[in-house]
């Protein structure tokens, strides 16, 4: 077995691009669920919003606008416009679609509608109908939108960085990602310590009590939904830039579940939980994946138990089981505080 590559992949999981993406999405989910008590099971669609907002602006909407209105917007202009659309416009639209029908109702309704919206988006985006495919390119997804980003990279594309972990482009993406992540965590920290965050927590505990004290619970829930969605969208955008493609199947419901795992692992309702959780999650996932693959190819694990293609499946099984055990025995997260959890009388 090649321990070197196992360790390498462990570290790429702990600090790499997937960690950043899921930490950002989990920061958003923490704002939704951890602080406001919103059961959002459609975080993947906010991530998709970020990815498709950027990709469509650069690859389809922008060029179409140039053609039809005779504009001459450069790719980098479109790139920055795409960031705005992906981070603000799309998430706000999705949050309204999810929130307006459900935020006045019991928490379960939001759960169902968020999954529904995520699924609607995925089905529509991957539709082969020409009228839709023109904008989203069906299940193959959109490409050719990340050029502007990588053009800004100061790193050599041929070299490898940080103990050979990352290529130049990856290094650039990861560094930008860390900065964004640090910024997001800081914003979240400030929000939670403010009277605004106090209202969110009150709504999580008992919405009627908050309303009786003059807080417009609906408006606060919407603000939280939008803001958390924006964090998710930033994550999704980084994912798309990293893959250089925005594809519907990168944003399936299981992606949302992954975000939940990251959050629960770290302990919902704590500012650093998403970061710790996502890092642990991807560290474990990468480690087990490479470990099992190495085991299979070195014939330590016989083919009768697991073949190369089954490694991914076994890894998912372990993750599912881990999530179930964690939620059953340590719902407060790895580092959470049991007593505080016990106060929960829902």
């Amino acid at each position: 077995m090649d321990w070197g590559s196992i360790i390498e992949s462990l570290f790429r999981g702990l600090i790499g691009e997937s960690f950043i993406v899921f930490a950002l999405a989990a920061i958003g989910l923490n704002l939704h669920f951890g602080y406001t008590g919103l059961l959002n099971f459609g975080q993947a669609v906010f991530m998709a919003a970020g990815a498709y907002g950027l990709a469509m602006m650069v690859a389809t909407i922008g060029p179409a606008a140039n053609r039809n209105f005779g504009w001459d917007l450069s790719e980098s202009t479109l790139f920055w416009a795409g960031i705005f659309v992906g981070v603000i416009v799309f998430p706000v639209i999705f949050a309204f679609v999810m929130g307006i029908p459900t935020l006045r109702l019991r928490a379960d309704y939001l759960a169902i509608v968020t999954i529904a919206v995520a699924e609607i988006f995925r089905i529509v985006v991957r539709s082969p109908q020409p009228g839709i495919k023109k904008w989203t390119n069906s299940s193959d997804g959109l490409t050719g939108f990340s050029g502007t980003f990588y053009d800004m990279s100061p790193f050599g594309t041929q070299d490898r960085y940080l103990f050979n972990l990352f290529t130049g482009n990856q290094m650039f993406l990861v560094i930008v990602g860390w900065v964004v992540l640090a910024f997001a965590a800081a914003v979240c920290w400030l929000l939670i310590r403010s009277p605004w965050g106090r209202v969110l927590k009150a709504i999580r505990e008992d919405e009627d009590a908050a309303r009786s004290l003059g807080k417009n619970a609906y408006s606060y829930k919407m603000q939280a939904l939008i803001l958390g969605g924006i964090f998710g969208a930033v994550g999704g955008m980084i994912r798309a830039i990293g893959f250089s493609v925005a594809q519907p199947d990168n944003f399936i419901t299981d992606v949302t579940f992954f975000v939940w795992v990251a959050l629960i692992l770290g302990g919902a309702g704590k500012v650093l939980a998403p970061i710790v959780g996502a890092s642990l999650l991807y560290g474990l996932l990468n480690f087990s994946d490479t470990f099992l693959r190495e085991g299979v190819s070195a014939d330590v694990i016989p083919d009768s138990i697991m073949t190369g293609t089954q490694v991914g499946q076994v890894r998912f099984m372990l993750m599912g089981l881990g999530l179930a055990l964690l939620a059953a025995f340590r719902p407060q997260g790895i580092f959470g505080n049991k007593e505080e959890m016990a106060l929960d009388d829902r």
């Binding site: 998912f316 099984m317 599912g320 089981l321 939620a327």
Partner: peptide, 18 residues
């Protein structure tokens, strides 16, 4: 809590699916 039970069910769903 109901929420942790819900998350347990998500975990089991992923587990059995795979």
């Amino acid at each position: 809590s109901l929420i942790s039970a819900l998350v347990v069910s998500i975990g089991l769903s992923i587990f059995f699916r795979y």
